[in-house]
């Protein structure tokens, strides 16, 4: 098992390099002199010269890439001139908030999505199935930012169940309940689309499995129907559900940007949007590479989970 994890980690290296190349190439599309673009209104001749020196901006593209990469490997993601602090510090701080939000949404979408899909499949064409199918369709069709706004309107403004927006620091002096209070609405709004996708896929994966011979064997043994569905069928269906959960993790992680805007959540997505509007290019560059790298690592965790679940995968 340890060997398998190591193998997967090693195989992530080319992917991480590929990601850095793609981000670098995208950022190289910025028209005009890079130093001026990066510095924006801070572009005094001295600053431009210093930055050129730092990032090797006078060098050819390939050299520039390697300078950037080696800086990053050493933990130097550059400096945000607008915020006047290192990119990595800012990203790490914001990423924590996003992780709380996206992590909660991910748990929600996995649990409710799978449950809805299984119930739907178990009652195929019945009332429950039709109701779930309709709700799921609504869920995957509604823009999460619109849903978030409507939730604020209904549950925060009219019913006063939850605060309108904002977030309390996790490690502050407030209790966890204050955080949860602020987290509930954004996490749900973020989870809805992903829940719909997971539910759909779980339903079809379950239907596929329920027709298999080993389900008939379970029934022939006299296994209770509940156990046939939740133990035999779901276990086998998980093999095709888990990869989709991996993809959905990417959706909630990056889709958090909308929710963070709507609920004023101090996450990395909002940081990116602000940075884009401010043309704070190094912050965008660093943030994107960091998030993508985290996602790659998460997907390795998904693969490992898959191999634990399915003994047929050679580890």
């Amino acid at each position: 098992m340890a060997g398998y994890i190591l193998k997967r980690l090693l195989s992530a290296i080319p992917v991480l390099i590929g990601i850095s190349v793609i981000v670098f190439l995208i950022m190289a599309m910025i028209p005009g002199d890079p130093a001026t673009a990066i510095l924006g209104s801070y572009a005094t001749p001295e600053n431009v010269a210093a930055l050129n020196e730092d990032l090797g901006l006078d060098e050819p593209l390939v050299t520039r890439y390697f300078i950037w990469l080696s800086n990053m490997v050493q933990g130097d993601f550059g400096r945000s001139f607008a915020l006047n602090r290192p990119v990595l510090d800012e990203v790490l701080e914001r990423f924590g908030a996003t992780l709380v939000l996206a992590g909660t949404a991910f748990v929600l979408c996995s649990v409710f999505g799978i449950a809805a899909g299984v119930i739907s499949a178990a009652n195929q064409y019945g009332f429950g199935d039709k109701a779930i199918t309709f709700v799921v369709l609504l869920g995957i069709s509604i823009p999460s930012f619109f849903l978030g706004m409507m939730m604020i309107l209904i549950f925060a403004v009219n019913l006063r169940w939850f605060p309108v927006s904002g977030m309390w620091p996790i490690f502050g002096d407030r209790t966890i309940w204050v955080l949860l209070d602020h987290l509930a609405m954004p996490a749900i709004a973020l989870a809805v689309v992903a829940t719909g996708v997971v539910a759909r896929l779980s339903r079809s994966a379950m239907l596929e499995v329920l027709r298999q011979d080993f389900i008939r064997t379970a029934r022939a043994k006299g296994v209770r129907e509940n156990s046939v569905i939740w133990r035999h069928a779901l276990r086998a269906a998980m093999v095709s559900i888990i990869p989709v959960l991996g993809i959905q993790a990417g959706f909630v992680l990056s889709g958090a940007v909308y929710i963070e805007m709507v609920f004023q959540w101090p996450g990395v997505g909002r940081m990116l949007v602000d940075a884009i509007l401010r043309r704070d290019i190094l912050l965008v560059q660093g943030g994107v590479v960091f998030i993508a790298a985290c996602y790659v690592l998460f997907n390795i965790a998904v693969d490992v989970a898959q191999s634990l679940l399915d003994p047929r995968i050679k580890t």
């Binding site: 990116l272 965008v284 790659v296």
Partner: peptide
């Protein structure tokens, strides 16, 4: 595969960041 390794909307954000809003 490399492009697909990005979380979905993130890549779009990076492209908009480079090209401008």
């Amino acid at each position: 595969d490399m492009l697909m390794a990005f979380p979905y909307i993130l890549l779009a954000l990076a492209i908009v960041a480079a090209l401008g809003p």
